[in-house]
Simulated scan of single mutants.
Amino acid sequence: MKTNPKRLGVLGALTAALLAAGGTLGATAMEVSGPRAAAPQGAVEKLAGAPYLYLGWGDPQDATTVMSKTGVSAFTMAFMLSSGGCTPAWDGQRPLTGGVDERTIDAIKAAGGQVQISFGGWSGNKLGPSCSSPEEFAGAVQQVIDAHGPDVVDFDIENTDELEDYAVQDRILQGIAIVKENNPGVQAVVTIPTSISGPGGAGARLVTRAAELGTPIDNYTVMTFDFGGSDMVADTISAARGLKDQLKAAHGWSDAEAYAHTGISGMNGVSDVGEITTPEQWTQIRDWANENGLTRFAYWAVNRDRGCEGGGVTSSCSGIAQEDLAFTRITAGF
């Protein structure tokens, strides 16, 4: 049975464990000192709750049916990868246009919905290492924007090839700046792993480095799962507060400004390391995010938003007793 592709394999578990423990990674020559560039200021657009929908995995739910049943108006479509070199393709193998992904995006838009497109994730060949320069990386992203017109581009930077290789991390951050310059109406999000106290190691470095480079990132989202939590409400809030404090330190923002650049991406039901998030807990997390002015709210994944019990993580259900589409209905309330 195929497991969660965002956290596939032993290496992924070891990486998550290191970050959860607050481990650090050695600096490289790509890290430079010097004054930080001015951080982007101004109002940040609150994004509609947008759970991940992955058409290359398990038994994906029909997007427009989900919209009509739950009231959700946006999806984060996963994952845009490399099909060889710096050429983007859905899941690294489905065509950029003309396939099920394009048909789904067109249907979502026709139904009045919005689309976020996620680059990266855990498994597969990433564009960050495959593109040779920030300009080439930005060009690959531009192909996707031109093809699908997303409201948001989400850079899910968690695999060691992108997160822990600081030359690649810098390439992505510099590429995002080019993308934003060329597409000021498209929101740029980075999604990164976290410990219960906030991003650690390479994730913390990304937050600081983005500020140093002046990369205009609209939202930093922490993946609040696979960090060994015991109380998923308290631990998720703790992780988000940790990110908020890092953003304050990096940019000189107030609490409100930092929260306005913060997002949460959870995992419904049973996580890869056995944590359990129930619909009741997800509601509490959503309400806290709304009350504190966070601007992105997502979870992995709509594919799993069905009830089942036992058997651990599967591609088509949450591993807990729940009403079908319960997490999506809750997310629609963000």
Rank of each mutant, 00 (worst) to 15 (best):
K2L: 12
T3K: 10
N4C: 15
R7D: 15
R7V: 15
G9P: 10
V10P: 09
G12D: 14
L14E: 06
L14Q: 06
A16W: 06
T24D: 14
T24H: 03
L25V: 15
G26Y: 11
A29M: 07
E31G: 11
S33Q: 15
P35S: 13
A38F: 08
A39C: 12
G42C: 06
E45S: 15
A50R: 12
Y52P: 09
L55K: 00
G56E: 09
D59G: 05
Q61F: 04
T64C: 00
V72C: 07
A74Y: 08
F75H: 12
L81S: 01
L81M: 03
S82L: 14
P88G: 03
A89L: 09
G92M: 05
Q93S: 14
L96I: 01
G99S: 09
V100D: 14
D101F: 13
D101Y: 15
E102G: 07
T104P: 08
K109I: 08
K109G: 08
Q114T: 13
F119Q: 00
G124S: 03
N125G: 06
K126R: 15
L127M: 10
S130L: 08
E135R: 09
E135N: 04
A138D: 13
G139L: 01
I145H: 10
I145K: 11
D146Y: 11
A147H: 05
P150A: 10
D154N: 13
D154I: 00
F155H: 11
D156I: 10
I157G: 10
E158S: 11
E164L: 09
A167F: 13
Q174V: 02
Q174T: 08
G175A: 07
G175N: 07
A177Q: 11
V179K: 00
P184S: 01
G185C: 08
T191R: 02
S195Y: 04
S195T: 06
S197V: 10
G198V: 00
A202C: 10
A202H: 11
A202T: 13
A204P: 00
A204T: 01
L213N: 01
L213D: 04
G214K: 08
P216C: 02
N219A: 15
N219G: 07
V222S: 11
D226R: 13
D231V: 02
I237W: 07
G242T: 11
Q246I: 09
K248G: 07
G252I: 12
S254W: 04
E257W: 11
E257A: 14
H261V: 00
S265K: 14
N268V: 01
G269T: 02
G269A: 08
D272N: 12
V273S: 11
G274T: 08
G274H: 09
I276K: 09
E280F: 00
Q281S: 01
T283P: 03
I285P: 01
I285Y: 04
W288A: 00
W288F: 12
W288P: 00
T295S: 07
F297D: 10
F297S: 06
A298Q: 15
Y299L: 01
W300I: 01
W300V: 00
W300F: 09
A301G: 11
D305M: 07
R306E: 09
E309P: 08
E309A: 14
G311C: 10
C317M: 05
G319D: 04
I320M: 05
E323G: 14
T328V: 08
